[in-house]
Amino acid sequence: MNINRLLFQKMDENTTNSTYNGIITTSYHNSHSFINNISVVVNIGGLQSTPGAAHFLEHMKFWYNNTNLYDTMNKLQTVLNATTSEFTTDFSLCCTKNQITISINHLLKSLYNHTFSIDIFEKEKKVIINEIKGYDLLISDKEQLNFIRKIIGRIPEVKSLTIEELSKLSIKNYQKNNTHIYIYGDMSIDNEESTSNNYNNGVLHIPIKFIDKECTISGKNIEIIIKVLYLTFCGDFNFTYHGRYIKTNQAYRKLSKIHFDNDDYLIFKNNSFKRVVDLLEDPNSALRFLEFFKIQKGDFSRFYDCMSNSLKLETLLDNLITEVN
């Protein structure tokens, strides 16, 4: 594959920022993808409410008019899953091109329903309590277990939750203006008017958590991407993305600066280009990338230009070394 600016321009052409039924939507088109991967992200997580409430609400969203959403999706041959993290609840769908619109519509209908059956509420409460017991038995790492408990709650906390609390939490958080849809694949969906594609000049402040220290890196989304790529390249760190921060289970190692007058710069640049291209070939990685870095049309060309400007890049990396060292 010839990696050049035309390739990154093509990646921008494949990126669409729009709305669907009033919900902000980011799509990445891959004509070679047989399956569409969709992530519907609601900005309510385990750390933003009573422990266990957001996770309990996720369970309740799998029911609509006493019908389980799994059954509805199975009839459409659509795979459905959901995860509650610290700051978001993510509902994921995998389906063919012909089923994307109807699958999303069924999911959204359930997400924006705020009336729950007391029988299903009690049934899901028992399911969650058994889930908590399972984690308590299977996970011996105290730090990991305490993190899980922040999301799913402890048994007394879950038992104390009421159907009225969940309904109020649903009304407050499960709204169109608190939801973002991400789509990857050879999609067929009727998007509404495009949202502004102007470059977002807002500065992001992203904490990075090592096992022995924490620091914060700052910059526009493209600059954050480059800084993370440099940490991966020079520090050999493996990062996971957690909505509002980046984490690694590795100890911090002091960064050194690459030399821009020899092959180091070319190796880093080419390695970074390839990593981004490879990310967008994998549906799950692509969706996480689009979501975490708030990608807009034009960002891939901006990324290429910034990486190709050695003076600008050197200044950016000097700033990174100061931030983390």
Rank of each mutant, 00 (worst) to 15 (best):
Y304E: 02
N65S: 08
K220C: 05
Q175S: 11
S117K: 12
C306Q: 03
K109R: 03
N4P: 01
T232V: 14
N178V: 08
I23Y: 01
S18W: 05
K247M: 13
Q48S: 11
K294G: 06
N105V: 09
K220Y: 09
N271C: 00
V324Q: 02
S285F: 07
I224G: 09
K213R: 13
Q48K: 12
E157V: 09
N284A: 10
K172W: 05
L6E: 08
S33K: 02
S301L: 05
E143V: 15
H180S: 14
K75D: 02
S31A: 07
N146T: 09
A286V: 09
I35V: 07
T248G: 11
L311Q: 05
I100W: 00
D299Y: 07
G134Q: 12
K133S: 14
F233L: 00
N37H: 10
N30Q: 08
K220T: 11
K213A: 12
Q175R: 14
A54D: 15
F289S: 08
L229P: 00
T195G: 04
G243Q: 14
M73H: 00
D278R: 01
N17D: 03
L166H: 03
V324S: 05
A54S: 14
F237S: 04
I102H: 11
F303A: 03
D318A: 04
S85Y: 15
E165A: 14
S103A: 06
S140F: 15
N197V: 08
C215W: 09
G134A: 04
Y304I: 03
L76D: 00
I152A: 11
E13P: 02
D212I: 13
L108M: 02
A82L: 07
L57A: 12
Y112S: 02
S310T: 07
S308M: 04
L313T: 00
H242L: 10
Y135M: 13
E122I: 06
L107T: 03
M60E: 13
K297M: 01
F121W: 10
E193L: 11
D141F: 10
T19E: 04
V324F: 07
I222Y: 05
L47K: 14
D261W: 04
I258V: 02
I132T: 05
F300C: 02
L137C: 08
N98R: 13
G243I: 13
Y230E: 01
A54W: 08
F147Y: 14
